[in-house]
């Protein structure tokens, strides 16, 4: 059993107009050849002024995912600590970044607040990731974004329940005091039905579509493309333009998408 993965990102039209950087980040591995293990993740830094380092926060979220999930793939019996691991590693990386590049004077702690949230807030980001070894597939998410699994019978599903208790554009975030409690995760053992396709994306992708059915239809189409023996690399190469089209004609937000396919027909080996 082997996997191959890839991903891409496109800056949103509204970010270009407002002179903001692309505040999404992603990671996908392996991209060059198939491997029994894979990891994909996307992170979406919050967009408003209070989160003025969220592009860095998203990058650090990806780093935190890689570090935490690597350990959990090797020690799946410790899976219960995954939420705490991801948040602690992200907080450590944020503090290291602040050490190299201190927050502006007056931004260290907001008046009337006494928690470390004030130093983490500028870096606020979501995180959606999936990784698998030969024994276990782990899905994890904090905040908005999409995580879908595809199966041999053609079905597509979301393995994690939707967040509750939020209004409008609100999302849970790594920067919140109770971030570990907001991390959702699930471990799928090899003995259970095993997905053959995985897709993660930031909310700039799904919110561009007229409804969820239209988005899921596109996910189904991606699965069919990469499972039918089409060149995965050609799909990955075409992703940035596709994401730009989605953002420009829909959400206006940064749009980032990663996918992984199992038993990919390896044309380059």
């Amino acid at each position: 059993m082997s996997w191959r993965a890839g991903g891409a990102t496109a800056i949103g039209a509204s970010h270009i107009r407002n002179k903001r950087p692309n505040q999404d980040a992603f990671y996908a591995s392996p991209t060059q050849q198939s491997d029994p293990r894979f990891m994909i993740c996307v992170a979406d830094g919050h967009g408003s002024d209070a989160y003025y380092r969220s592009d860095i926060g998203a990058r650090l979220a990806v780093e935190a995912f890689i570090e935490a999930i690597s350990w959990n793939l090797d020690s799946p019996e410790q899976i219960n600590s995954l939420p705490q691991d991801i948040v602690q590693i992200w907080r450590r990386l944020v503090k290291q970044d602040i050490g190299r590049n201190p927050l502006p004077p007056g931004f260290e702690r907001a008046p009337g607040r006494a928690s470390d949230r004030d130093i983490f807030e500028p870096y606020g980001s979501t995180l959606v990731g999936v990784a698998a070894s030969e024994q276990i597939c782990i899905v994890v998410q904090i905040g908005d974004g999409d995580l879908l699994l595809g199966y041999e019978d053609g079905t597509i599903n979301r393995p994690l329940a939707a967040d509750t208790g939020l209004h409008g554009e609100q999302t849970y975030s790594l920067c919140l005091d109770d971030a570990p409690q907001r991390v959702k995760y699930k471990a799928i053992k090899r003995t259970e039905t095993w997905p053959d396709f995985v897709l993660t994306s930031t909310d700039g992708v799904s919110k561009a579509f007229v409804d969820d059915a239209a988005f899921v239809d596109v996910v189904r189409h991606y699965r069919e493309l990469v499972r039918s023996g089409e060149d995965l690399q050609a799909t990955i190469n075409a992703l940035p333009d596709w994401l730009r089209q989605v953002s420009d004609n829909g959400s206006g937000d940064d749009a980032t998408l990663c996918l992984a396919s199992r038993r990919y027909k390896i044309q380059d080996q």
Binding site: V210, Y222, L225, E230, A238, L239, N249
Partner: peptide, 19 residues
């Protein structure tokens, strides 16, 4: 050589401005 596009073709009406 396949003529199939490497990414899904977005059908008219699939994307929409948010209200």
């Amino acid at each position: 050589m396949s003529e199939r596009p490497p990414v899904p073709v977005i059908t008219p009406g699939a994307l929409a401005r948010r209200r």
